[in-house]
Design a protein around this nucleic acid. Structure first.
Lengths: 247, 247
DNA sequence: CGCCAACTTGATGGCTGTCAAGTCAGGTGG
DNA sequence: CCACCTGACTTGACAGCCATCAAGTTGGCG
């Protein structure tokens, strides 16, 4: 291990030529709505892909920010930590979603992004993205929409954390995951969780035991089939009813 | 009341000529970092000011979005509602802060913005802001920073809601308010709350009685002096200790 | 002066956290 | 191939924080 690596460079980093124009995620991701000619200009910018192994960080709190990342494949969590070690998972991100928007504000990352499975991301140098979005109105507007969508999503999480009971939170979470898998062409009813009960709990403001109990309850009620991380949704309406079940 | 008013127009709406270049909030607000010449171009865009009376809405969920608002004076809350009536306050905004970023995503507002005291906002037509930020790099970049800052702020609220106990939440809230008042040239130690205990509670994911009890506790400990909405911070370090008090 | 909303304070209960023990699945090494 | 180990998960018992319900107080305003 005597090789000298530049700081911030992940050992698992690996650079691959890539292109938005040929990416099957382009309708979900940043290129949404661009013309062919505009797509090609974006290709010049999104030129490198990085592989991140399960468990590794894509970036860490207080690392300098200079790029945002589009998830090409895989699954991530982002989290923030309190000095005393308490963790709050702020989101789970899947293919086509953007990571790193938190860093624009201070030019340093303010959260950690960690791969929950072996993943690939496209690096998008931020100054070049700003430059190109000054030239391509559609790109500019879509980028603004993506940032705004993140704010709206965060409001939804606040609502969840601030007003919902444990089972409502978990039902909301499962239905959200299901909807996002569906948007990516996967089954809406059957999927594997990439995160642990503890990570779900952190995201939902609950302890892992409470998450586990809620899973068991849903299982007993016949809403879902649970086998460790494998989830099958059997009764969407049942879950939806849980979502808004007062008391 | 037989007068016919255009939809969406607030009775309290009133249009005033305004200018960023002469605004003493410009270092806090959108114009941050602009040259004089650039400021004048922004003036053309930010041309109308609206007065909003205490208790009135600046905008409501599902109203079409076409402008963001910079608070010139006053105090707002934003909230989202669940079908069953549960409310989550997503933020309190004061002079120099922007409102309406949630609307960019879907072109409809996704939360309500309500004045907590008589207020004035500057309307910034969003399409014209995008146009100008394609021409002024500094403006573009600062706008991105503002959006990103909102995302980072939201992460902080998630942390608060997800991991902190009642007294930690209130201490965090008070110190955050104090810091923002300070940034606006007001006393860091003495201020009037514009919101009720119930609104604080909604923001912090607590019931109003719990907020009230936490205030009383801080009072008894000698950290603050409370008289209804008037707050005097007597022991910043005491509050800071509360912020990170495990158990 | 009286009314009302906002607030405070007390008593009680329940949801979820905490602690603990046991189960399960997957990976490793003999 | 199997025993073992470990991390992840489940389940139970109990406790505590905060919600709920209730009564009383305060301050502002017509």
């Amino acid at each position: 291990m005597a090789r000298i690596l530049p700081l911030n460079q992940d050992i698992t980093l690996s650079v691959i030529k890539t292109a938005c124009s040929g990416c099957n995620l382009r309708e979900l991701c940043l290129p949404y709505g661009l013309s062919l000619e505009e797509l090609e200009r974006l290709d010049d910018l999104v030129s490198t892909r990085r592989r991140i192994k399960r468990g590794d960080h894509l970036y860490r709190v207080s690392e300098p920010f200079d790029a945002i990342y589009a998830i090409r494949s895989g699954f991530f969590k982002t989290d923030v930590l309190l000095e005393d070690g308490r963790e709050q998972v702020t989101g789970f991100q899947m293919a086509g979603e953007l990571l790193g928007l938190d860093g624009i504000s201070t030019e340093y990352h303010t959260c950690n992004a960690i791969a929950l499975e072996d993943s690939e991301v496209c690096s998008i140098p931020f100054n070049r993205l700003e430059q190109l979005s000054r030239e391509i109105h559609t790109l500019q507007h879509h980028f603004h929409k993506v940032m705004s969508r993140e704010i709206v999503r965060d409001h939804g999480v606040m609502m969840l954390l601030g007003t919902m009971r444990a089972e409502e939170r978990l039902a909301t979470f499962l239905l959200n995951l299901s909807q996002r898998f569906t948007a990516r062409g996967f089954s809406h009813a059957e999927f594997n969780l990439r995160m642990t009960r503890e990570e779900i709990g952190s995201y939902l403001g609950l302890k892992l035991e409470t998450v586990s109990r809620a899973f068991s309850r849903f299982h007993d009620e016949g809403y879902i089939a649970v086998q460790q991380k494998h989830i099958r949704i059997l009764d969407v309406d049942g879950l939806k009813a849980m979502m808004s079940h007062r008391v």
